[in-house]
Amino acid sequence: MKVAEEAAPGLRRPSRWLDLRGRHEGAWAYALNRLTAIGLIAYLYVHLGVLSLLAHGPSTWNSFLATTKAPFFTALDAVVLLGVLFHSLNGIRVVLTGVGVAVRWHRLLFRSLMALAAILFLVAGLLWSIRG
């Protein structure tokens, strides 16, 4: 015997959207949408904070740019782009099905949009490497 959960096991728990055991792709889409939303909101403020360096003049901004060549920043850019692509394309599914369009094909719609996200990510990587 072991303690499984705290008292009143069936009561509401707001964090339950993160518990994806036994769930289908719709719940995964919702949870990932939330996670990317939280990440993108955080990134919005990081981005705005970084842009404040522009107010300090050319030397501050240009020396900051030199530090962004580090692999860490490229990796961060890739993560942000993945988040943006997932959130945007899943958003199209949420809006379309949310007004009654393609409701019966929501799974196919989700899979197609995620395939498109993967293609766009690869294209972006290709552009990134060509541009240098």
């Binding site: 015997m1 072991k2 303690v3 499984a4 959960e5 705290e6 008292a7 009143a8 096991p9």
Partner: peptide, 14 residues
């Protein structure tokens, strides 16, 4: 099986 009684908490019983 999850066993629960109000005031006694819950546990899994085999």
């Amino acid at each position: 099986v999850l066993r629960y009684r109000p005031g006694e908490g819950s546990r899994l019983e085999n």
